[in-house]
């Protein structure tokens, strides 16, 4: 799906490093991607691949030892990295909202839901408390909290995990942001509750024409919710394309291996494909393509940084050997 015009969010060559006692962690190493207005985009990868750091870098909410070394984060044409803290506070919540993985720790346990929402709403939308309460109740109703009018005065512990995640969605959307970053929004939830929450996220995304970055390791969730996918590995984007292309015609060996390792609902009992080796440590990452030590197609050239190749309109892959796909096809991936 190619969109015309400027993207809503454009991340260009982003480098984020963490300075730790044991060395410099190159968490993001030249990450580029964009999100268009009204487009749900998936960010996929395994733990430690830089998905969450990307979100934190965009909003500049990195832990203290994390630093953005270089790059641009263009949002509606403005480079957010040039903004000062006060300007960023204006952007956070109002223009870019975020939902976190753990619905328990993202809500203040000693504040009523109303107070937690009203604070934000009245500050950013410039309305008085009563109006803000009304907006809060309306948002809670929209995400399916029963009896929102009375439950808005409850505390977080009085809600279940699924309900709390709904509250977070309501709070994130109360300010009518243009971009929603959802970092593993359903990972902590049960499968039936996950289905409910995803349904709400999808509905809200469509109704408000939100640009959305859905960060997850669950490929099923990505397939059902997004239109475009960026696959992360070792702090870099290794493949980006439309969701359908990534799932049906993946070009990067890592994407292919990742897809093959999911137990399919149809697959009979037997062996799953695995990826040899372990995820690289980013303190001392492999030279060149970061996947090459685990890649079965790696050659000497892979020890140099792979080019990002445009295979098709809107299909990018970072691999030296992507064009040998035909030869690989018959193998057992």
């Amino acid at each position: 799906m190619v969109q015309n015009g400027k993207p809503l969010l454009e991340v260009k060559n982003l480098y984020t490093y963490f300075f730790t006692e044991s060395g410099i962690v190159q968490a993001l190493d030249g990450v580029s991607f964009d999100v268009h207005r009204g487009e749900p985009v998936g960010i996929v990868g395994e733990s430690g691949c830089g998905k969450s750091v990307t979100a934190q870098s965009i909003l500049q909410i990195l832990p203290r030892n994390g630093k953005i070394i270089a790059g641009e984060v263009n949002f509606r044409g403005y480079d957010l990295l040039k903004f000062n803290e006060k300007q960023m506070n204006h952007v956070r919540g109002k223009y870019i909202s975020m939902i976190f993985q753990d619905p328990m720790t993202s809500l203040n346990p000693v504040m009523r839901i109303r107070d937690q929402m009203v604070d934000v709403i009245s500050m950013h939308r410039g309305v008085d408390e009563f109006e803000a309460t009304e907006i809060a109740i309306k948002m809670l109703e929209a995400v399916g909290i029963p009896e929102a009018e009375s439950r808005v005065y409850n505390y977080p512990h009085e809600f279940s995990g699924g309900m709390r995640q709904r509250i977070l969605i309501a709070r994130a959307l109360a300010l009518r942001p243009e971009l929603l970053i959802a970092d593993e929004p359903t990972t902590a939830l049960d499968v039936t509750i996950q289905a409910q929450v995803l349904d709400i996220i999808r509905n809200m995304q469509q109704r408000h024409n939100l640009g959305m970055m859905l960060i997850t390791h669950n490929l099923g969730v990505v397939a059902e919710t997004t239109k475009r996918v960026h696959v992360f590995y070792g702090g870099r984007v290794v493949e980006s394309a439309s969701t359908r292309t990534v799932f049906k015609h993946p070009m990067h060996p890592y994407t292919r291996a990742l897809l093959a390792s999911i137990p399919s609902f149809l697959q009979k009992k037997g062996k799953l494909a695995t990826i040899p080796g372990v995820v690289p440590r980013l303190i001392n990452p492999p030279k060149g393509c970061r996947f090459h030590p685990r890649c079965r197609y790696a050659t000497d050239i892979c020890k140099t940084r792979p080019p990002v190749v445009e295979i098709d309109k809107d299909h990018f892959v970072a691999c030296h050997h992507y064009d040998k796909l035909g030869e690989w096809e018959d193998e057992e991936y």
Partner: peptide, 8 residues
């Protein structure tokens, strides 16, 4: 309720 990794 299982999300299926197949966009088709």
């Amino acid at each position: 309720a299982i999300p299926i990794p197949d966009p088709d």
